[in-house]
Design a binder for these strands. Structure first.
Length: 549
RNA sequence: GGCCCGUUGGUCAAGGGGUUAAGACACCGCCCUUUCACGGCGGAAUCAUGGGUUCGAAUCCCGUACGGGUCACCA
């Protein structure tokens, strides 16, 4: 009796593996092309760490003329959530991480190397598991969870490594006949690898990011087919990446400890080894301590956060790209208008240890990107955001598109555009005082140095009577403010005041601040001349009346 | 605890035997300036630690400390 009988008994319907080898032939791609894959489980929203990996996968495939695959790792059906695939696909799409092949929606996919949902690849995994059983490299294990628990307890007591290996691998040496009998009797079982590894031997591995690493060999008889007939990650990974002809496995470095197992599996299955790149985890500063950024504690860990805040996907991408390859930033400075696609990304430039996620820096990237946008683009994007998150803002913008654009165009489009918007959620506060209806209820005025009501009215009234004219150019306008200042006993220039403060009540800036505050309610705003131009005569007069009411 | 990986300013980091140890964000100061931003100039601030190798160490080797990851019929 040989292993074939056992293999046929366990997987009677499995195809020969040669069938799959032919069905999924080597890809016809240019020399040096990367085939990468992002393989999340449909357990919820995408995590920034996942996005980070996805961006790298996509970038590398694109810049080498390769393929980027989206594979769904749904072999753990307990953890799956409804709409999981939709969330992944949609989440990635928002960041332009669009796969060349793989899952498209809950039940659609594209590409010749599918299915791309692991739950639909059961037959394939079983065929390969069968081949291992046939070669005597895998066997059925009848241990129940309780027995496994018991073994672990003993191991803890004996202070030895936990796991299913060596003498602890009870089912490994059950005679073939007995195995067959027990299966025929309907006993439950899983399939385990019969590890050929030894803990006292070392395996070497050259990682694209981490460089040379050494481990003890794997000697665990890991499960390759679970009780439900599906494989765990460790077995799905070699089978899928081999059959999908993946050249570069890029994944988080939390996988490093199981690499010896994967290496053994690739060898046992006689697969060509892909290149591995283990990326460092994105961390979070938690009161001076570093820890893995977490879905539970950190809202910014969820990709949906950026949509909610109105942070441009582009900003997140550029920030993350810079974390991945820190030479991105100098490149961007040198090539401010080039597409990210032109940046030459290098795996080996990635840092080996985890970077702390820096929201302040991300927001700075975002400000710079937004500062290059036209008022119209900002208008459109803000409105799009407001559509989801801010009814009031949406209405404000929609009611008068032209006015909205004029407001957003203040101090924009010139050589040194404003850099004051980092996220769309900020926009409302920046523009709201430009809307008469909203300003009508204003009661707070942030006056600075000149606070006396009589003096304020003196400045405002004199201005309106003698100097107010919207037809003025900016220069004329400002000269008039200076004339006004002088007339009322303020210096025309700030410098003059600073040199001899006792000679003046204040300086031209104090005067313009009064006008600014009466018109806008605020002491800090963009250029007052432009604001007045946009508001127009009636609005300005109305605002002045409002102040004196 | 075992196994693996790491440690350059507050953060991201360049640098791989000889450097005044880049740059960016943040911070501080000055300048520009009608306010705020922007921009310009400048400043403070880093090689975890102890040994070795070497004429010379951030860089190579060993130890220590600290940080992180991982030890499932999860991925």
């Amino acid at each position: 009796m040989d292993y074939k009988v056992l293999a046929d008994l366990i997987f009677p319907d499995a195809k020969e593996i040669s069938y799959y080898e032919e069905k999924y032939p080597a890809r016809n791609l240019p020399e040096g092309a990367y085939v990468t894959r992002f393989a999340p489980s449909p357990t919820g929203f995408i995590h920034v760490g996942g996005l980070f990996g996805g961006i790298i996968d996509k970038k590398l495939a694109k810049q080498t003329g390769g393929k980027f695959i989206l594979r769904i790792e749904d072999t753990d059906q307990k953890r799956e959530i409804e709409n999981g695939i939709f969330q992944i696909v949609n989440g990635l799409k928002g960041f332009e991480v669009i796969p060349d092949e793989g899952a498209i929606s809950e039940d659609e996919e594209s590409g010749e190397y599918g299915p791309y949902k692991q739950s639909e690849r059961k037959d394939i995994y079983q065929a390969y598991a069968k081949s291992l059983i046939q070669k005597g490299l895998a066997y059925p294990c009848f241990c129940s969870p309780e027995e496994l628990e018991e073994i672990r307890g003993k191991q803890e007591q004996a202070k030895v490594r936990p796991g299913y290996y060596g003498v602890w691998a009870k089912c490994r040496n059950i005679p073939l006949e007995e195995k067959i009998k027990r299966i025929q009797n309907g006993e439950k079982y899983v399939i385990r690898l019969k590890s050929a590894g030894r803990e006292d031997r070392r395996v070497e591995h050259k990682d694209c990011i981490k460089g040379k690493i050494e481990f003890p060999e794997n000697d665990q008889d890991a499960i390759i087919i679970k009780g439900d007939g599906l494989p765990p990650y460790h077995f799905a990974h070699p089978v899928d990446d081999h059959l999908m002809r993946v050249t570069h496995v890029i994944r988080g470095d939390e996988w490093l400890p199981s690499l010896p197992l994967h290496l053994e599996l690739f060898r046992a299955l006689e697969f060509k080894l892909p290149k591995f790149a283990h990326t460092a985890t994105i961390m979070k500063d938690d009161d001076g301590n570093k820890r893995k950024i977490s879905k539970r504690k950190d809202p910014e860990a969820a990709v949906s956060y950026y949509h909610e805040q109105g942070i441009l996907a582009e900003s997140v991408t550029e920030y993350l790209l810079n974390v991945a390859n820190s030479n991105f930033e100098p490149w961007r400075r040198g090539n401010p208008d080039k597409s990210v696609d032109e940046f030459d990304f290098q795996l080996n430039k990635m840092n080996v240890s985890g970077a702390v996620f820096d929201m302040v820096k991300l927001l700075d990237v975002s400000k710079t990107i937004i500062s290059k946008l036209s008022a119209e683009e900002i208008y459109n994007k803000t409105l799009e955001w407001a559509n989801y998150y801010d009814e009031e803002l949406k209405k404000l913008l929609e009611d008068n598109r032209e006015y909205g654009i004029r407001v957003l165009n203040i101090e924009r489009g010139n050589v040194k555009p404003r850099k004051d918007i980092a996220k769309w959620i900020d926009v409302k506060d920046i523009i709201i005082y430009m809307y008469d209806d909203k300003f009508a209820g204003n009661t707070e005025y942030e006056f600075q140095k000149v606070n006396d009501k009589e003096e304020i009215s003196n400045i405002v009234n004199t201005y309106m009577e003698k100097y107010f004219d919207l037809a003025d150019s900016k220069e004329e306008w400002f000269n008039k403010i200076k004339d006004l200042a002088e007339e009322l006993g303020y210096s025309r220039e700030v410098k003059a005041y600073k040199q001899e403060p006792e000679k003046f009540k204040g300086h031209v800036g104090d005067v313009s601040t009064v006008l600014r505050v009466v018109v806008t309610g605020r002491s800090n705003t963009p250029d007052l001349y432009e604001i007045m131009q946009v508001l127009g005569k009636d609005s300005i007069k109305e605002r002045i009346n409002l102040f004196f009411k």
